[in-house]
């Protein structure tokens, strides 16, 4: 995979994909999309990176332990947001009742906990996609060399 065109295009397009993915995550509560869709888009940028530049250089950019930590942190973050409402005296995952600021409908910083929860899901999906992909790649490399 030493194709110049692929590399140049990838280098050009990856930032845009990532911004778009982040946009979908952050606007999850006001427009179609959300954590899962946005996380997948973000992950696809890194998958493109692996295809263009190889798995080794991707490993340098995003070591495995970082991806793994983001993955678990996303889940813990989600539950932590849910637990906030327990301390506010309502039930798990309550939003307005737990005192999260609602903001003006339609704005980015609105909808209280939903905004944060979508972000947590985005983190988890992004890193899970990456880990799954790199594991599959690793298997192939092992079989190829050994």
């Amino acid at each position: 995979m030493r194709d110049l065109i692929v590399r140049v295009i990838a280098r050009f397009i990856i930032p845009f994909i990532q911004v778009y993915g982040l946009y979908i995550v952050l606007y999850g509560h006001v427009s179609p999309g959300g954590g899962f869709a946005g996380g997948t888009v973000m992950a696809s940028s890194l998958i493109l990176y692996v295809m263009a530049f190889g798995a080794r250089s991707e490993k340098r950019r995003l070591p495995e332990w970082v991806a793994r930590s983001i993955e678990s942190a996303g889940a813990v973050f989600f539950v932590a947001i849910g637990l906030v409402s327990l301390f506010q005296g309502t039930t798990f995952l309550a939003n307005q009742a737990a005192g999260f600021p609602m903001g003006i409908p339609g704005r980015v910083f609105s909808a209280g906990a939903i905004f944060l929860l979508t972000f947590g899901i985005g983190m988890k999906v992004f890193s899970t996609m990456i880990t799954l992909f790199t594991h599959l790649i690793e298997e192939e490399e092992k079989e190829g060399t050994g």
Partner: peptide, 19 residues
């Protein structure tokens, strides 16, 4: 909150271990 906590406790502990 016991019904929710009974599901959350093992879930969170699992992800802390993975973290």
């Amino acid at each position: 909150h016991l019904p929710a906590l009974i599901i959350l406790v093992p879930l969170v502990s699992a992800f802390i271990i993975l973290l």
